[in-house]
Design a binder for these strands. Structure first.
Lengths: 139, 139
DNA sequence: AATCAAACGAGAATCATTCTCAACCTAGCC
DNA sequence: GGCTAGGTTGAGAATGATTCTCGTTTGATT
């Protein structure tokens, strides 16, 4: 399916795999720059895009706008607080169990998915609760 | 939970609700600019961010980098081709049925979610198949 | 009407990402 | 070896969506 990876692409993917969690393009570049396989920023982004097209790399965007990359073989998903923006991994993937009806797919070949829950973390719920009380107390 | 919406915020949300599908910030601004409730670009983004924090608006990023906004009450999800980038709505949401174990949530209050499948559309599978054959035929 | 705080918007600033293009490999061939 | 064609690289410039700044406006309250 995906053609053979070039040496550079393998280095990039390897670097991505060794990082715990997700990395931004800039960070990945900084990290590679200090490794024994440095490469230019343009090259990092070029291959990141290519690997995404081949379904080997996924990318998600935080509410802050930051783009984070990770290898797709990690089936990680997240809970993200819409208020404070903290994001935390979800233990295991509940989508594996899901069957997509073939009729819905209509020829589409799924390679991986992203699932993300947005809501309020415990801290922000408390903070908002307090703020609401304060408001009520000051009519 | 979310404080009362200001007039501007209601206009913005209304505009978002009347557009079919999803809109980029720029497009929404352009659209409002020609309506009877024009507003500045800064204001559009300011409130879009605020509404996201209140869980009323969601945003997803296409592989092309474009950011698209939609009201969260629409429970739409998508199939996106990693190769050509076309994106197509999925009939109905298979996540509704999912139960998240409370233990996994640990105080987190989910408001909405995003689910997106990435893979190859029928056309790109064919194109790749042909390319592979071409390669095999030219050793 | 006077005062004050909050909301607005034009334009500047930011910054991740993409583009440009000259230099540089690599493989195949003479 | 020397040569060419084709693809890859990376420094720096360009892009463009989003955010910030800050003087102005609005609107609520007294």
């Amino acid at each position: 399916m995906s053609p053979k990876l070039s040496a550079r692409q393998q280095q990039l993917l390897a670097a991505l795999r060794t990082t715990a969690g997700e990395v931004s393009g800039q960070d990945l570049h900084a990290h590679l720059r200090q490794s024994n396989t440095p490469m230019g920023l343009a090259t990092v982004y070029r291959h990141l895009r290519q690997l995404q097209q081949w379904g080997l790399v996924r990318c998600r965007h935080l509410p802050s706008g930051e783009a984070l990359f990770a290898p797709t073989e990690r089936d990680d998903h997240h809970l993200t607080c819409v208020d404070c923006g903290t994001t935390r991994p979800l233990g295991h993937c509940p989508v594996q169990a899901l069957e997509l009806p073939g009729s819905a797919l209509d020829g589409f070949l799924p390679l991986f998915h992203t699932l993300e829950f947005f809501g309020l973390c415990a801290a922000c719920q408390q903070r908002q609760g307090r703020a609401a009380e304060d408001n009520a107390a000051r009519p």
